[in-house]
């Protein structure tokens, strides 16, 4: 890769960042070294350079440069969109940012957390912190998917993806994590639902412009979850073998049934997760209710053994 192009990109960024006014294309091509060849070649180089910088998240603003010639455009990188302001963060905030970046311990996320840390240290120098006693995080979901969805929630951009075999278009309202899984809360045809990220099939596409929708005023993730858990308070009934399934006995009350079994009631929200929990305990746990789930469990076992 030629150093010439890198040098030109740096000089272009610096010029657009240092300028107090919008610079015309002609000024840029005339004053910034590296734009060589015919006028068409120079123009093509400039278009590609702009695309490259924008592709890496640098915001280049465009404005009509000359009121008399409406097709003449001017370019500028606003300092506050490009770099942090002087003294933007207090010492304590810099420490919190350092701790937040240091939490992650996972190859996919580590590069981003290291890059974030470099920027924090470019504001503060080395930060003393008590990270030795803070747990680290390992993220196991698809990191890029989480980033796309987070960004769409932040920018209020419509999302399109496949979920349970159906193509969906949704307005993303929020994100939450529960038992290590991330969920998107979004409105699909005016109904607010939650979508488990690991069950999204393939890529997620952001559609259209930012600020594409308004969230209902009274919406917040906490209330949504409260309403959801109130409306779905399902309880399963199970038999648990005496002296077995210690982790369940530790969490839920058991009743004596006979010399071999005890009875236990366990609340659940997700049928698949209940089935997984029952099967995990093998012949020490028997699902009694709901009967439909017991039938599904038997059908799954038969399909496995006959398949």
């Amino acid at each position: 890769m030629s150093s010439q192009k890198t040098e030109r990109l740096i000089n272009l960024t610096l010029a657009l960042l240092a300028s107090k006014r919008y610079l015309s294309k002609a000024e840029i091509l005339r004053n910034i070294p590296g734009y060589e060849g015919s006028p068409e070649t120079k123009e093509r180089m400039f278009e590609r350079d702009k695309d490259d910088l924008r592709g890496l998240g640098i915001q280049i603003d465009v404005n009509n440069f000359d009121p008399l010639f409406e097709d003449e455009q001017g370019y500028l990188i606003k300092s506050d969109s490009f770099q942090f302001a002087e003294n933007e963060f207090t010492k304590e905030e810099l420490l919190l940012l350092t701790m937040a970046a240091n939490l992650w311990h996972d190859s996919a996320v580590e590069i981003d957390s290291q890059n974030a840390l470099l920027k924090i240290q470019s504001l503060s120098g080395p930060v003393e912190n008590d990270m030795t006693t803070t747990p680290t995080l390992r993220i196991t979901e698809d990191w890029q998917l989480l980033v796309s969805i987070f960004t769409a929630v932040q920018d209020k951009q419509i999302l399109e993806f496949s979920y349970r075999g159906k193509r969906r278009q949704v307005n993303p309202y929020g994100l939450y994590s529960s038992n290590g899984f991330w969920y998107l809360i979004a409105s699909e045809i005016n109904v607010i639902k939650s979508f488990k990220l690991v069950r999204i099939e393939g890529e997620v596409d952001s559609i259209g412009e930012k600020d594409a929708f308004e969230k209902p005023d009274n919406f917040n993730v906490g209330n949504f979850l409260k309403e959801e858990s109130n409306s779905v308070s399902l309880v399963s009934k199970l038999q648990v073998r005496k002296g077995a399934a210690l982790s369940l006995r530790n969490k839920f009350a058991v009743k004596d049934l006979d010399s071999e079994w005890d009875l236990i009631s366990i609340p659940y929200t997700n049928e698949q997760e209940l089935l997984e929990m029952v099967l995990w305990h093998g012949t020490d746990l028997k699902l009694i209710e709901p009967a439909t789930l017991q039938q599904l469990l038997v059908a799954n076992l038969e399909s496995y053994l006959n398949g």
């Binding site: 998240g57 969109s81 770099q83 937040a100 970046a101 981003d112 957390s113």
Partner: peptide, 17 residues
């Protein structure tokens, strides 16, 4: 002064916080 956080760095920071 350093560049602002990128999209992915921002997710690391906000979720971490």
């Amino acid at each position: 002064r350093p560049r602002r956080f990128s999209k992915t760095e921002l997710v690391v920071i906000v979720l971490g916080l």
